[in-house]
Simulated assay, not measured.
Amino acid sequence: MSLSILLVDDSKIVRKVIAKELPIIFRDQELKLTEATNGEEALTYLFANNYDLVFLDLTMPVKTGYEVLEALKEKGVRANIIVLTADIQPDAEKIVRELGAIGYIKKERPFNTNPLMKILQDTGML
């Protein structure tokens, strides 16, 4: 069985780093990865497909991650969304959790998989 993942980030570098880590994290599963570069593209994918896991940046062109979460909540679309962001607003984590995100991770260099692994274990996805 494959794991369907949507990776939404306007940074090609971030998408590349995350995409490289996913097979290591989910080493026992086949992955089907779809990438989106902005919130509008993400919504198009999310309204048309079911994903097992979504990684969502907050600060993007066209539509922000906040707008994506709001649109999904408004339409009643449930998804396992982990926000992965460099957003430094003090209330960002509280806001995205209220909008339905299952996790919130600050982007770091180099990318640290420990917070992601904890969220995945806590939610039973790993």
Rank of each mutant, 00 (worst) to 15 (best):
T37P: 00
K32Q: 14
K107G: 08
I82N: 14
L33G: 04
F26T: 00
K75H: 14
E98V: 01
D87C: 09
T34K: 02
R15Q: 14
V8L: 04
G103R: 02
E108R: 14
L69H: 14
D57V: 10
V68E: 13
T64A: 03
S11E: 14
D91V: 03
A19N: 11
A71P: 13
V54G: 11
L43A: 05
D57G: 06
A86M: 09
D87N: 15
T113R: 13
M60F: 15
T37I: 04
D52K: 01
K94S: 14
P115I: 04
I5C: 03
P115T: 09
P90R: 07
V96F: 12
L31D: 09
I81N: 12
G65L: 06
M60S: 13
K16E: 15
E21K: 11
E108A: 11
N49M: 03
Y45M: 06
A86Y: 00
E67V: 08
I24P: 01
L58W: 07
V54C: 08
V8Y: 03
V96M: 12
E21I: 00
D87G: 08
I82P: 08
F26D: 02
Q121G: 11
D10N: 15
N49Q: 12
N50L: 03
F111W: 12
L84A: 08
F47H: 11
G124F: 01
L84D: 04
A19F: 00
I81Q: 11
V17T: 15
I82K: 04
D52L: 01
A86S: 15
D10H: 09
T64N: 06
V54T: 15
K63R: 15
E30M: 02
E67Y: 13
L7N: 14
L116R: 01
R27Q: 08
E74G: 01
L120V: 15
N114D: 15
I24S: 01
R109K: 09
L116H: 00
L84E: 04
I82G: 10
N50I: 02
Y51S: 00
E93P: 08
L99I: 10
A19S: 15
E35C: 08
K94M: 06
P90G: 07
L7A: 02
L43I: 01
K32H: 08
V68F: 07
T113L: 02
I18H: 07
F55Y: 14
I105D: 10
A86C: 02
A71H: 11
S2Y: 03
L7E: 05
M125A: 09
T37Q: 10
D57I: 08
D122E: 15
A42F: 01
K20D: 09
K73W: 03
V14H: 10
T123W: 07
K107H: 12
E70T: 09
P115H: 04
M117Q: 14
Y45P: 00
L56T: 06
L72C: 03
K16P: 00
D9Y: 07
L22Y: 07
I5Y: 05
I82H: 11
L31R: 09
I105H: 12
D122M: 07
G65S: 12
P61C: 07
L116T: 00
E67N: 06
T34Q: 08
M1N: 12
V83L: 05
P23Q: 03
I105Q: 12
T123L: 05
L46W: 05
G76S: 06
